[in-house]
């Protein structure tokens, strides 16, 4: 609950800082919260920009049904930093610290949907870091993957790859 309230406050503060300028773009999250952003931010999101271009800029309210009001502020924050040329290792480290594994996944999907190359690359690295040293079972759960190997196929593959299964961490990290 607290998170929902804070994301609503966040959306409010975003609209206040850009008072009713007709140039701003309204992004509407899946749970119907409006985020007003500068057109430069929209440019970072290829999906949004091509929508604007297709309508010759007449439509400035863009529904993003696949993205929640919880995730959208993170995406906007990253895009703002990117425009300002302030994506540093320090920023990225701080940014990722705030995110649990579930949020990383959601943001990856959001970045893919919005087609933001830099954010996708960055989150690929984050996901790679988070699955390194985890067991196969953990990674399957993480990606929601169904195992379609037969037991014989899996056993054979595991034998071929026996050299890789050293130093696996126990599966105890923030699972919901």
């Amino acid at each position: 609950m607290a998170e929902e309230v804070s994301s609503q406050m966040n959306s409010l503060s975003i609209s206040e800082t850009n008072p009713s300028s007709s140039a701003t773009i309204s992004l509407v999250s899946g749970d119907d919260i409006v985020f007003k952003v500068e057109p430069t931010i929209a440019k970072e999101m290829e999906t949004v920009q091509s929508f604007i271009d297709e309508t010759d800029g007449k439509i400035t309210t863009i529904p993003l049904p696949n993205i929640s009001s919880h995730d959208l502020p993170y995406v906007i924050e990253y895009c703002e930093k990117s425009i300002a040329g302030k994506i540093t290792k320090e920023f990225e480290a701080e940014f990722v610290k705030k995110l649990n594994n579930e949020e990383v996944k959601e943001l990856f999907l959001a970045a893919n949907y919005l087609n933001i190359k830099k954010l996708l690359d960055f989150l690929s690295q984050v996901i790679a870091d988070r699955i390194a040293n985890k067991s196969v079972e953990y990674v399957r759960r993480y990606f929601g993957i169904e195992n379609d190997f037969t037991p014989e196929e899996e056993a054979k593959l595991r034998e071929e790859l026996a050299w890789t299964f050293t130093g696996v961490d126990p599966d105890d990290e923030d699972e919901n």
Binding site: S124, A132, V136, V139, R140, D148, T164
Partner: peptide, 16 residues
């Protein structure tokens, strides 16, 4: 983004 060995251990065995 995973080192070769890590990628082998964590991803190829997930599914086909």
């Amino acid at each position: 983004f995973l080192p070769f060995k890590e990628a082998a251990a964590r991803t190829c065995i997930l599914n086909k």
